[in-house]
Simulated scan of single mutants.
Amino acid sequence: MPSHDFKSPRLHVDADLVEAEAVGASPVQANYLLNVLRLGEGDAVLAFNGRDGEWRCELRKPAKKKLDLVPLVRIRDQTPLPDLLYLFAPLKHARLDYMVQKAVEMGAGTLQPVMTQHVQASRINIDRMRANAIEAAEQCGILSVPDCRDPIGFAALLAAWDPARHLIFCDEREEAESPIDTLRAMPPGPLALLVGPEGGFSEDERAKLRALPFVTVMSLGPRILRADTAAVAALAVLQAAVGDWREG
């Protein structure tokens, strides 16, 4: 585990982070820092924007209703987004929030909602999804907020797919075999992971996926998992077998 500062408050900002150039805190951030955490002028916080690394900043109040973050020193260089595309059928509200947060924590670099036949939620709030991704990044020391994409239809997704990126398809009907062995048998290259809705994939969707040469079907064991649980399990197995959990 890298040695990070997990004690100081940590905020994502949109502005550039440059030494000594003040960045205005949003009203929500100011309320959190001043009224919830009871911080004041001169206290330290961490800030990141996904481009300029992580900076230790000093709080300053140039006016009664204004709070600035003044970058003093960059303590971590910027790291790129993980090249892992996470595809999921949207869930409803709180469970979708949970799944998005856990996907960010588990190293997804892109979050792509996919509208499958049995999808539970016909609409998805991209702003809310991004807010949950930012919150997870703030809390877990992540420097790059994943790309939160607009929903895409299942057929359109496959029609536009780059076959150079291998797609791992979690099928609840697949015979229970070791997912580690399945993943390690794949050719090297960029990866994507697809988790379906609570109702599972339709027979037509399942058949189309299985017919594609760039798709690997993976079992998540003998038990049927909820979609949000399956997301965490699948991402953990993937990172352990062929992702950034491997030693070296």
Results as ranks from 00 to 15, higher is better:
R74Q: 15
K64E: 15
P188T: 09
P190F: 05
L111S: 02
V145H: 00
A136S: 10
M186P: 02
R130V: 09
G107Y: 01
Q117L: 11
D68C: 11
R95P: 02
D127Y: 12
Q117F: 10
R76K: 12
D83S: 14
L84R: 04
D127E: 15
I124H: 03
E174G: 10
V195G: 02
P187H: 06
E138F: 06
P151C: 05
L111N: 00
P163G: 12
A94E: 14
A89H: 02
L96G: 04
C57L: 09
D162E: 10
L143S: 14
P62V: 07
I126E: 10
L158G: 02
M186G: 09
R173F: 14
V100F: 02
L67K: 06
G153F: 05
A89E: 00
I124A: 06
L191S: 07
N125H: 11
I142P: 00
E177C: 14
A160N: 14
I180V: 14
T110A: 10
I75S: 10
A133R: 01
A155D: 15
H118D: 05
G141Y: 00
C140W: 04
L81Q: 09
F169V: 08
G153D: 10
R74N: 11
H93L: 13
D147S: 13
E177K: 14
I75M: 12
A103T: 03
M129P: 07
V145A: 08
C140H: 10
L85M: 14
L91I: 07
C57R: 01
A160G: 13
G107I: 03
T110D: 01
F88H: 03
N125L: 08
I75C: 15
L157M: 13
L84D: 02
I142K: 06
A137P: 00
R165H: 07
L143I: 12
C57A: 12
V100L: 10
D171Q: 04
T182H: 07
R184C: 09
V195N: 02
Y86N: 04
K66F: 12
T182L: 06
Y98V: 08
C148R: 00
K66W: 12
G141P: 07
A133Q: 00
E174R: 13
M129R: 03
L143A: 11
D181W: 10
D147N: 12
G141S: 04
L194T: 02
N125E: 08
M115D: 00
H118G: 07
E174H: 12
G141W: 03
A133E: 08
P163T: 15
D83L: 12
H118R: 13
T79C: 08
S122Y: 08
L67S: 03
T182F: 02
V70P: 03
D97E: 14
P71D: 11
R60L: 12
S122R: 14
L87G: 01
D147L: 13
A156T: 13
P80H: 04
